Simulated assay, not measured.
Amino acid sequence: MKQVKYINISKGIGILLVVLGHQPINSEMFRFIYSFHMAFFFILFGFLFKAHNKNIKSYLTGKALFLVGTYIIASIWSVVFFVLVGVIKEGGVSANELLMKAFDYLLGSAHSGSLTPNGPIWFLLAYFLYIAYFQLIYFLNEKVGKWSHIVFIPPLFILLNNSYFLPFSLNATILAIPFFYIGVLYKRLLATYPLNSFVLVVLTFTFLIIFYFLFNIGNSYDISVSQVGSYWDFILLGGLFFLPILLFSFFLEDTLLGNLLEFIGERTIGILCYHIIFITGVSFAISKVFGFEYYTLRESMIYILLVVTTYPFILVFILNQKWLGNFFILNQKWLGKFFRKT
């Protein structure tokens, strides 16, 4: 499905925030980014949602092959990177360490840093389960009515009151479910008012003011490890910041910055899966070639700015080379030969 330009620009903004959030930034900047950046992608799914009731089996199979298949490929490269880091830092890794790391990626949960050195790939599993859940809910909606939409309440209540860590990042999937309905509400809102309307501009500034006061409650957030503050403030923060990102993206449509953000916004999966490995590897090489201390280099604000503004574009350029990219990301064009395009 071809998306309007401002959607891809907004995805570009979102993925740059993901990259920035994985740099050694100060705690308040970290807390700010994590209060809404992953929520944005979950809300965007609800905003763009289309039920595939007539071809649900082939649709979900295609999504599973792409997202879970890419997770498997990224996990293999993550284990390879884990071994390389072990060789450089410790002279090697034991067979037991290697097996445990492989098991961590098989389990697919980011809790306790289990997916180190490439934690962000938790999103691929959580997002697939999120997609599958809502496609099945809307399929059931035709059979049993709107009651199908409340089935998430018991598991959500259990998660909020207990410390259960589920495999395949299912915790994040369940905690993100309310974001879908926020996305649906935004879809209805934008069907009534265009993005550049006075109403939405005023609403955006109102949301930013409310966001400011909620954020200053002081809670910390990271949905990948079920750290969601008091939860409902986390849901509100994500929902409140979605509209400002969309509006900003809309006004960037005819600018060079908008074109650059669109470029990476169309390739968010590759950046998500490999930016940590790429940035760590390049930074290590630079530190060795130019004689910099690695951690001093990584913590430099100038270098962080360089990383966020250039490295994602270089990574996308590399992954766009067909002879190379197919080793890292499952080819959607190949899948499209067998499954209906979405």
Rank of each mutant, 00 (worst) to 15 (best):
T173K: 01
F157Y: 14
A191V: 04
S249G: 12
L129W: 12
G145P: 02
P194M: 09
L185P: 00
T255W: 03
I217K: 14
L189A: 13
E253R: 12
F248P: 05
I121Y: 04
L236G: 11
F250C: 04
N162K: 10
Y221L: 02
F180E: 07
V144I: 15
Y193W: 14
L159T: 02
G119D: 12
V151D: 00
I223H: 05
P155Q: 06
I217E: 14
P117S: 01
W232H: 12
L175I: 14
K146E: 03
A172M: 06
L189P: 11
Q227I: 12
Y231D: 02
F234L: 04
P154T: 07
F234V: 03
L208F: 10
F179E: 10
V202F: 11
I245P: 09
E253A: 01
Y133L: 07
S230A: 15
P244F: 09
E253T: 09
L240C: 10
Y231K: 05
S169C: 06
F134V: 07
V225C: 00
F211H: 13
F165K: 11
G239I: 07
G238C: 06
T206E: 09
F205A: 11
F134Y: 10
F213L: 13
N219D: 15
L156Y: 14
V228L: 01
G119F: 00
F157T: 13
I223L: 11
S197Q: 03
A126M: 00
F139N: 04
A172T: 13
Y138W: 14
Y138L: 13
T173F: 00
W122K: 01
L240E: 10
V202D: 11
N171H: 08
L236R: 07
F207Q: 06
V202G: 03
S169D: 10
I209A: 13
F152C: 07
F134R: 09
L236D: 11
N118Q: 05
K146N: 13
Y127E: 05
D222F: 13
